[in-house]
Amino acid sequence: MATTTHGHEHNPALQHHYDTPGQQKEAATLGMWAFLVTEIMLFGGIFLAYTVYRWAYPEVWAAAAPHLNTPLATVNTVVLLVSSLTVALSVHAAEQGNKRQLVTLLLVTILLGAAFLGIKFTEYGEKFAHCAGYANPLAWVTGGERLGEAECLVPGANFLFPAEAAAESGAAAGEAAVAHQPGMKSPHQLFFFLYFCATGLHAIHMIIGISVMGGITWMAARNKFSPAYFTPVEIGGLYWHLIDIIWVFLFPLFYLV
């Protein structure tokens, strides 16, 4: 870099291979949008699987969906939507150069994201506790209340869907006939499998999103941003919005239908 053909050395945020800050910002934004398209295609595969099987086993889907914890998920949806708002506000704060407001809003976003994950893991914990024979995660840890009716909604060898178990013991529902084929497991398990896959993948994205936000907060606290340069806040915000939007699709598909 001894002889430079460009005289922007005074601007530390401008990387050597860009001509202007505007060009750098446009590149970053376009890159993020292209990445979001990729992410949508990634989740698209799961949505396709969901559609195919919902089409194939509509009554199974109808029976399985109520076994998810809709109240908790509703709370989570609200938490995420509020976090989208705080992200949008933080971009605004960065535009204004208001550092204190920016850091505060980013921290609130991170807290909301963590709250979402906490609630999500409570939901998962509930399913796993049921498999272990306890009524809720707390009882599982403390060895408290046992589960009344046996149930295990975590896909795997121990999977047990209550209605299916009842059908097996008595009435000859069409579904039970399917379940009796050798090696054939219940399509109910598919619903929960897709549920864990989709929400698990989403949770991984949340974890990444929170670390990205953490990095941006750290940069903000160290005065890396100015009204002239706050691209990371913007593209981080874009990513965050994408995670929210994916949840907005997952929520009705799994919990409400």
Partner: peptide, 9 residues
């Protein structure tokens, strides 16, 4: 960018 994520999933 459009096709690879589908095979990934």
């Amino acid at each position: 960018i459009l096709a690879t994520p589908v095979v990934a999933i």
